Amino acid sequence: MATEDKELLNSSKAPEPVGLYPHARRVGNLLFLSGVGPRERGMKKIPGVELDENGNILSYDIEAQCHSVFRNVRYILEDSGSSWDKLVDVTVFLTNMKDDFKTYNRIYAEYFKDNQPCRTTVEINCLPTPIGIELKCIATID
C-alpha cells in the first residue's frame, strides 16, 4: 500500500493520547480510531470520577463518562474528516458490566438511534487510566 494511503490523524479537541499513538489512522476509505475514553483535553479531572489522594477510584458516574466518551469520538471523527453517521463498527470496553451496562446501553441507544453500527461490548478488569468505559471505533471516510 502506498504511503499516501496511510495517514495518522489527531484531534485538537479530544484528550491527548496517554501513549505513543494517534487518535486515528486513515487507511484507504477507512478510519480506525484508537481507544477513546472520557477524559477531557488538557484536564486532569475525568468527568464523573472521584479519586482519593492515591489515585484510586472512590466513585464514578457511568452516565457522565458515556456522554464524554461519545463527545470525544465525535471530535476525532469530525477533525479527521469523517462523521458520526459514518461509524460502521464500535467495540465498547466496560470495567463493570454488571452495574453499568443498563445505563450505558440506554445512553448508547440515544446516540446511535439514527446510525446503528455493528457493536461488541466486553467487560475488562481495568483500563490504563481510572475510567469505566472506552470505545474502539471504525468509520468510513471520503
Score class of each variant (00 low, 15 high):
131 I>L: 09
37 G>K: 10
37 G>A: 04
97 M>Y: 15
65 Q>R: 13
121 T>L: 02
75 Y>T: 02
35 G>N: 13
91 T>R: 15
95 T>H: 13
70 F>Q: 03
50 E>L: 15
38 P>Q: 06
75 Y>E: 04
15 P>S: 05
121 T>F: 01
65 Q>N: 04
6 K>N: 08
113 K>N: 11
28 G>W: 12
112 F>E: 05
24 A>E: 00
109 A>W: 10
90 V>T: 06
13 K>I: 01
131 I>K: 14
65 Q>V: 00
8 L>N: 11
81 G>V: 05
9 L>I: 12
3 T>A: 14
86 K>N: 10
101 F>A: 01
25 R>F: 13
13 K>L: 08
118 C>N: 13
121 T>C: 05
86 K>F: 07
116 Q>H: 14
84 W>C: 12
114 D>S: 02
47 P>W: 04
66 C>E: 08
8 L>D: 13
49 V>L: 01
66 C>K: 03
104 Y>F: 14
142 D>I: 03
41 R>T: 01
121 T>P: 07
134 E>A: 07
127 L>P: 08
102 K>S: 04
35 G>E: 14
58 L>Y: 07
36 V>R: 10
122 V>I: 09
9 L>H: 05
102 K>L: 11
61 D>P: 02
61 D>K: 05
8 L>P: 03
111 Y>S: 06
67 H>I: 08
90 V>R: 02
78 E>K: 14
45 K>W: 10
44 K>Y: 15
54 N>F: 11
12 S>V: 06
25 R>V: 06
70 F>P: 02
34 S>N: 10
87 L>Q: 07
